[in-house]
């Protein structure tokens, strides 16, 4: 469904992406891992043209684009098929939660305000913010803001949602709530490309994992392949570092009830995903 072919990108003299090939099938969750500077965020942002790749082709569904000759209509078309969830939430600060979700529907998709409002309310309910419609972002906690961000991305009904380190700015206690929302999306069959450091999430939810370092995909495969049957030295070194310092990756996934607490901020999160 999504095919990235030989993507190259440099910032001034710094070659950040060196010929990336990536494939994402419909309904798949693909996780991009890697140390900072590996280019994973840049790759993600190339998909919706927030960064312009220098070379290579991007295909989403039946739309194929040559990045060396990007035209405005092509960029617009790519962006119509995707939405993004940002590390810093990037909610429209001058709009309420409900208006944030409605904005794209009304302005870009031309949906009548009443219909847009209903759909947006439903999405906000789904992420557990049914009682916060008229709050401005300045009145919401980080976790709440990110959930609004996910609702905003969902409501547009895109072909794929891009997640750029969605939980990296959140307090540990609320990370789980947001991840639960994302798991719900995955369960409902949304195609997702996720840049994250949350290894447990990757193990649980991803269909495909790609480890990037220095602008190339060093290793990719199913979570089992990448995490347990690691082939490359670089990958192994990275995973060990994360295991030691970062979110816990305590060997094989626990059986039975989810190990990740489903508790969200006041207002309730979603029930934990049962395996």
């Amino acid at each position: 469904m999504i095919k990235l072919d030989d993507i190259w990108k440099a910032f001034h003299h710094n070659q950040v992406l060196k010929g990336i090939d990536l494939e994402v099938r419909k309904g798949e969750v693909v996780v991009l891992l890697g140390p900072s500077g590996s280019g994973k965020s840049t790759l993600l942002r190339c998909i919706n043209c927030l960064e312009r790749a220098d070379k290579g082709t991007i295909r989403i569904g039946d739309l194929e684009v040559d990045t060396a000759q990007l035209r405005k209509p092509q960029i617009a078309a790519l962006r119509r098929k995707t939405t993004m969830v940002f590390q810093n939430y990037n909610l429209f600060r001058n709009k309420t939660a409900l208006e944030n979700v409605m904005e794209g529907l009304v302005v870009v998709q031309g949906i009548p305000v009443k219909v847009a409002r209903e759909r947006s309310a439903a999405c906000l309910d789904k992420v557990g913010l049914g009682d916060r419609f008229n709050h401005f972002p300045s009145q919401l906690s980080g976790g709440q803001q990110q959930r609004v961000g996910i609702a905003r991305a969902m409501a547009m009904d895109p072909e794929v949602i891009l997640f750029d380190e969605p939980t990296s700015s959140l307090d540990p206690e609320v990370v789980g709530g947001v991840l639960d929302v994302m798991k719900g999306l995955a369960r409902d069959g949304m195609t997702m490309v996720v840049v994250t450091h949350e290894m447990a999430f990757a193990r649980e939810v991803a269909n495909h994992v790609a480890f990037m370092d220095g602008g190339v995909i060093v290793e990719e495969g199913t979570p089992a392949q990448v995490f347990e049957r690691t082939r490359e030295l670089r990958t192994r070194a990275f995973l060990q570092r994360v295991r030691r310092d970062g979110p816990a990756l305590a060997g094989p996934a626990p059986a039975g009830a989810a190990a990740i607490p489903g508790a969200g901020p006041a207002g309730g999160g979603l029930p934990a995903l049962q395996r």
Partner: peptide, 29 residues
């Protein structure tokens, strides 16, 4: 914040729409 415009673009707004609806109202404040 740059992110305001990026979010606008990511939902498919044009730069002009992002400016008019999101950035300029905040800039006015």
């Amino acid at each position: 914040d740059k992110g305001q415009m990026e979010a606008s673009l990511s939902v498919g707004m044009s730069s002009l729409q992002g400016l008019r609806r999101i950035v300029l109202p905040q800039a006015l404040a």
